[in-house]
């Protein structure tokens, strides 16, 4: 496979929310699969990665510009994978309330993890909770119409 991410890609980003859009665009430009799987990847993976980076910078690193966010990307075995790690204390993802419930629907925050789970096939965290791994399967029939529900 002639994919720009075939050998993997590691990025270390400063905590700067202004950098998120260009970082995501860079990743998408390096990934042949991202160009050929139009909506599946251009929406699901793009939004999922944007959310993971935003969470890492806003909540994990708490806006601290001296702390970085490390992104590890790979394509292989029919899957596109991104791992995003921050330097924060971590969090308990099971404690995040469902933002679609009536009592939460008018809250202005709390939709990032929900969107990741809806748009990606797999969303998992390390024990500490400062590293999230996103997986989008590239085989037909997965992710776009739902995604991970964990």
């Amino acid at each position: 496979m002639d994919d720009g991410l075939d050998a993997g890609l590691v990025l270390e980003l400063p905590t700067d929310i202004q950098s998120i859009e260009s970082a995501v665009e860079f990743v998408m430009s390096r990934c042949d699969s991202c160009r050929t799987r139009e909506r599946r990847v251009s929406l699901n993976f793009r939004v999922g990665l944007t959310e993971a980076l935003a969470n890492a910078m806003l909540y994990g690193n708490a806006h601290d510009p001296s702390k970085s966010v490390v992104v590890v990307l790979s394509v292989g075995e029919g899957r596109l994978q991104a791992t995003v790690r921050d330097h924060g204390a971590g969090f308990d993802p099971s404690a995040i309330p469902d933002p679609t419930r009536p009592e939460n629907i008018t809250r202005s925050c709390g939709r990032g993890l929900y969107l990741m789970r809806q748009l990606l096939d797999e969303v998992s965290f390390n024990d500490r909770g400062n590293e999230v791994t996103l997986v989008l399967r590239l085989d037909p029939g997965s992710a776009l119409e739902g995604g991970a529900q964990a």
């Binding site: 929406l43 793009r46 939004v47 944007t50 959310e51 935003a54 008018t106 809250r107 202005s108 925050c109 709390g110 939709r111 990032g112 929900y114 969107l115």
Partner: peptide, 16 residues
């Protein structure tokens, strides 16, 4: 092209 959760949140906040 797209809106992320922060963008959605701003729209919710403005609407309120």
């Amino acid at each position: 092209g797209y809106i992320d959760s922060s963008g959605l949140g701003v729209l919710v906040s403005l609407s309120k």
